[in-house]
Design a protein around this nucleic acid. Structure first.
Lengths: 204, 204, 204, 204
DNA sequence: CATGAATGAGGCTTCATTCAT
DNA sequence: GATGAATGAAGCCTCATTCAT
């Protein structure tokens, strides 16, 4: 029977997470010090450590949170009906990603999270889940595209879906590091590939 | 040991770079301490600092080196004749990337480099150049594909090339974090998209 | 231990300053390592760095502190009435300086501060202010000596005051390095000069 | 029977000492690294270490050298005849000191030497000898001033001489740190003191 | 529950000195 | 005799984390 309401606890947690996210977005995981988080949150070291027992836990929480956000979006994008063509779907993803790429957008964390995933198992799991979500989502989309005749009946659903999934982080990266790509680049690029004249397959 | 040959100096430089690369591949830029590099190289602090005046310089050198390696490969891939189809080209890139994704492969640094590029200007430049190289390379490839009739005459070369460029880091990432993709995934995925039946474009 | 009183903070600051001063007195600025200060103060690195953000700041604080101490003394020496003769004033300064020249006296820092002033702008300022204070103080004294007829009415107040100011660091230095001078040396020396028979000035 | 002429060895020694002196004058003992000396001398580490077996030895050599230079000057100043008045003698010292206070003048080392003398016994000795030389020189001068009637017959020669000796380092210090004093300040200051009307000594 | 002072391991780098060539 | 590459101890400082109040 805690002294303090559950709501209070939850509010504090949020306060800390919001601060941590802002810091991580601004400076990445490593360059962000716990002191940065204390300052940004307006809380003391002790307070933050009451809710999160290490910096790693904070990192993990934010990574997980980001994963959840993206997952939510992707799922809702799938529920649309009638089914938009592939280039349109990819374009909508890009539209969305673009907003999250703004100076305070969560996707600015993406490269840091990918790096962290290389040795932090918690982050690895979060990123893997995210990638799996994206793939699953794309598998379904590709299937439906096939089912409506926009892709050949014998299309390799997994290969196409996975390949499309490759492009997503690449788009984010290009946006963050080059800043010169937009949704139409992606949309038109996919459209261009889809518009290739079908040829007799060339034997090896 | 002074008055050593130019070759000796170069060998030492290599020795240090090799050690640094190995460390960075294993643990990333941040988690690698200079002590790690001293140990890995079998040299003392002073020796390493004689050749590289800061950790950042080491990071930059390795990043640049990686960029150069990839650039070299891409250029040679382009020079092939007759022109392979797009899925084949992408497949060859994947084959190559796969070998560099091994436990001691330079591409394991990629995510760390992307993250570092978010605030280390030297790395930003290296990555930007690499991305630009990849794009330029793909632009030429797409043009040639168009010229031989494998893409429509009015294809948006830049959009298609850029979009293909998105997939490359994504492939690397998937390989590193999921470990479940291979060159054929990529090859077949692109092939699948190219095989889409051409349709009357759907008005919005 | 947080939420401590202002007094506690002040006490800690003092503790650190006392330790730093002791170290500097013992070994000078350069030969004193931060580790020396940690040990002498009984505090950890982190604790010391919470109060002073660099060794230079510690050096500056001690230099400033020393300047303040000496300034305070000089001012009080001036306020005496009736006005002692010059040799007596100088003697009192020497008496005072002598105590500060003891193994734990702040004046043992003087040579280190003079050296540091050669390239540390903060120390330069502190020493300049101290010298200026001494001069100003001596100017007033010389004026008053003139006014009571102990110096000629047309005496060059600034030259005499400044010249007397030259002797102060010299006395301190002699005390520290030779150890064979005392207040009477200084007192009698000035008295001897003042006792010179006035002569017709000799043309060049 | 050395391979190399004595002259060569001596020339090298000089080369190194000249370089060291220049460095020490420019940056002081501590801030000067051996690398600075190597660079300034155009010699290698090994070469320098062949002639001086440690940095301290270099420091000591330069300190000693400086002492010798000043000693030489003072002795020659004494040999003049007829005897100039005290203020004139002091003025000549100041004239001389002034030139050695220039950006490349040896007296810029003085504060560093005083500081070093606080814990480096070799330097202590050098400075002590210098001070002793100055005093002895002044004792003689004061005696002669007394003998020609410019000071009272019962003047405390040692006190007056020692007191005058105090002013010398003070003048140098003021010149180096304030930059606003010249030989006339010193000259007139002493003259002012000497011109004090002789009074019946005041009981305490 | 919150505070924030304190800890101390560990990071990066410098530099006097040595010694193989 | 000269070179300068190499050593490694030691210096300054940061920062995640703890715990007394």
């Amino acid at each position: 029977m805690p002294r303090v309401s559950e709501a209070h606890l939850e509010r504090r947690r949020r306060q800390i997470l919001d601060a941590a996210r802002a810091c991580f977005i601004r400076k990445g995981f490593y360059e962000t010090s716990m002191q940065d988080v204390f300052t940004e949150s307006g809380l003391s070291a002790g307070a933050v450590y009451r809710y999160f027992k290490s910096k790693d836990e904070l990192v993990k929480a934010i990574a997980t949170e980001g994963e959840a956000l993206l997952t939510r979006f992707l799922e809702q994008l799938l529920d649309e009906d009638p089914l938009p063509p592939l280039d349109e779907i990819v374009g909508r993803f890009a539209d969305f990603a673009l907003t999250l790429t703004a100076p305070d957008g969560i996707l600015r964390i993406a490269p840091h999270a990918w790096a962290a995933a290389m040795y932090n198992p918690d982050i690895t799991v979060a990123i893997q889940e995210l990638i799996r979500t994206i793939r699953t989502w794309l598998f379904k989309i590709v299937e439906r595209q096939r089912d409506v005749g926009r892709l050949p009946p014998d299309v390799d659903v997994e290969a196409v879906g996975t390949t499309l999934s490759f492009a997503m982080p690449g788009f984010v990266l290009a946006r963050l590091l080059m800043g010169d790509v937009d949704a139409d680049t992606f949309r038109n690029g996919i459209a261009g590939l889809l518009a290739a004249p079908v040829q007799a397959s060339v034997p090896d």
